[in-house]
Structures are given as structure tokens and as C-alpha cells.
């Protein structure tokens, strides 16, 4: 199964929406860099994330989240926060890493 990484804010580009449109059940999406804004609770795309959770594992990179002034409290329920060690583990656990740029 695939690990998708998204590094753009959903308010800047459509790569997150594209990624979610392509991600199959059982795959995972990791939000890094400005991609972390897709994990923000109460934002316009919240339903896209919350509806996908269960079928797709949604993760967010903690250091990038914190660097943008957000904490665990700001993240949509069900989105898992990982550090770089967790990023490496996700990359190893999945067969392929697809970087959405």
C-alpha cells in the first residue's frame, strides 16, 4: 500500500484534494511542511479529512505542525501526530512513497 506525502496547504494548491481523490482504502496520507494546514480543526476541508479517516490513515508531522504555531489540540480528531522517526516508520511500513509536490 502507498504512503502519500502532501507538502502544500489545501488553501494554496489542490494537491491535497488530488491526493485524497487518488488514495485507496488501506493507504495512508502524511501531511508535512505547509501540508499540515489540512489537519486543522474547523477549516474548510475538515470533512474531507474526517470522512476519510477509517479508510485512510491520516498523519501529520508534529515538528512542522508546531513550527506553524499549532498544537495537538488544533488537529482534527483521528489524525495521528508523528515525529521524524514516525515518518521513517511509515515510509518503511508502506510499499511505495508517493510525494505530492
Amino acid at each position: 500500500m502507498l504512503l502519500h506525502t502532501v507538502n502544500k496547504s489545501p488553501f494554496e494548491r489542490n494537491s491535497f484534494a488530488q491526493c485524497m481523490g487518488h488514495a485507496k482504502k488501506g493507504s495512508s496520507v502524511l501531511l508535512i511542511e505547509d501540508g499540515v494546514f489540512a489537519a486543522l480543526k474547523g477549516a474548510a476541508n475538515e470533512s474531507v479529512v474526517s470522512n476519510a479517516i477509517g479508510d485512510i490513515g491520516v498523519y501529520v508531522l508534529g515538528p512542522d505542525l508546531n513550527a506553524r504555531g499549532m498544537t495537538d489540540e488544533d488537529v482534527i480528531d483521528g489524525v495521528k501526530i508523528v515525529d521524524y522517526t514516525g515518518f521513517v516508520e511509515l515510509a518503511a511500513e508502506h510499499d511505495v512513497v508517493q510525494s505530492w509536490l
Binding site: N7, E33, P63, D64, D83, Y84, F87, V88, E89, A92
Partner: peptide, 26 residues
């Protein structure tokens, strides 16, 4: 790595990933 240093986070992200992978024994 497709972006230069101090311009985009890519160089930092790639470094942090590489470091974490090595630390985990990869």
C-alpha cells in the same frame, strides 16, 4: 532533493528524514 537551501523547507525535511532513518538503523 529538488530545492535549494534557505529557499524551501525541502532541504531541511530531507535532512531530518535522512537523520531519523539512519538513527533507526536504516
Amino acid at each position: 532533493v529538488n530545492e535549494g537551501p534557505y529557499q524551501h523547507q525541502a532541504a531541511d525535511s530531507a535532512y531530518n528524514f535522512a537523520k531519523a532513518a539512519i538513527d533507526a538503523g536504516h
